[in-house]
């Protein structure tokens, strides 16, 4: 504040004022979101109560409002997705960042870009067709595998950046004491990137939790997740309490997404700076 400019023209002040107003508007949008969802879900909180909420049945028509099966569905599908995507994504990121093979890396990068560009309905449609081709049924595992494909680009791009940032001296040192390149990757690159890998997995989890349309299409009625229930039960909104219990589920979804998002960002950001979060 000491170095404040003496001559701030009226136009500059106006601009700053307008910009800060718009910034406040963003805050307002967020709080409006929370407000709307809380107000919307109030009837559900009042009528259902906490114990019915943590029960094991979700069927709005029959008046069962337990959210546990939804949380279970979200947990299983997105965890499966993240585990699969982390294993393959880290393998891919290793090759992309540590090996200079244009004939391999260029098409791979193109494909990863493609994975992130394809709209999610197409994943769902493709998933259905693949399942019917192999005579498999819809369900949690199918949904998890297809979600893994959608999460993959996030993980690959984050982990690749972190692996590119491994200090050259560490790598050269490992090679100098006689390690092969692959041993060097195990000894140096993977431990260095571990925290970033963890962070990107949590970010991938955020994405997997929020994915909706693929789950609706591929999970069918073999289960429900926090997101798919919003779409599936939206048609029932003429029944009593349905809309408000959907708001309640959305609030829960927001909470989960915000927590995983903050956790993942913190891990990735400190990993990029080379700091370590005590785990």
């Amino acid at each position: 504040m000491k170095e404040r400019r003496l001559h701030k023209s009226f136009g500059d002040r106006l601009l700053e004022g307008v910009l800060s107003l718009i910034a406040v508007f963003i805050f307002c949008v967020f709080f409006l979101l929370i407000y709307k969802f809380v107000i919307g879900s109030l009837p559900a909180w009042q009528h259902i109560g906490f114990f019915k909420l943590v029960s094991r049945q979700w069927n709005l028509v029959r008046g069962q409002y337990g959210v546990l099966p939804l949380i279970y569905g979200t947990f299983v599908t997105s965890l499966l997705a993240v585990v699969l995507a982390t294993i393959t994504g880290v393998a891919l990121a290793i090759v992309l960042s540590q090996y200079d093979w244009p004939w391999f890396n260029r098409p791979m990068l193109l494909f990863v870009d493609g994975l992130s560009a394809i709209p999610s309905v197409i994943y769902g449609l493709w998933g259905l067709s693949v399942l019917s081709y192999f005579h498999l049924s819809v369900g949690m595992y199918a949904a998890g595998v297809i979600l893994a494909l959608m999460v993959l680009p996030t993980i690959v791009s984050t982990v690749r950046k972190i692996m590119n940032a491994v200090p050259e001296e560490l790598k050269q040192g490992a090679l100098a004491i006689g390690a092969t390149k692959e041993e060097m990757i195990h000894m140096v690159v993977l431990p260095y990137a571990l925290q970033g890998i963890l962070g990107s997995a949590v970010l991938g989890l955020t994405r997997a939790i929020g994915e909706t349309i693929v789950i609706v299409m591929v999970l069918g009625f073999r289960g429900q997740t926090l997101t798919s229930v919003l779409v599936n039960d939206f048609a029932l909104r003429t029944h009593a309490l349905v809309t408000s219990s959907l708001y309640e589920v959305a609030l829960l979804l927001c909470l989960v997404a915000i927590l995983t998002s903050i956790g993942g960002r913190l891990l990735v950001r400190s990993a990029k700076r080379g700091q370590r979060v005590p785990l």
Binding site: V29, L33, G210, T212, A250, L253, C254, A257, T260, S261
Partner: peptide, 8 residues
């Protein structure tokens, strides 16, 4: 907010 699910 960028990480919030699109359904929201």
């Amino acid at each position: 907010m960028a990480d919030l699910p699109a359904v929201i």
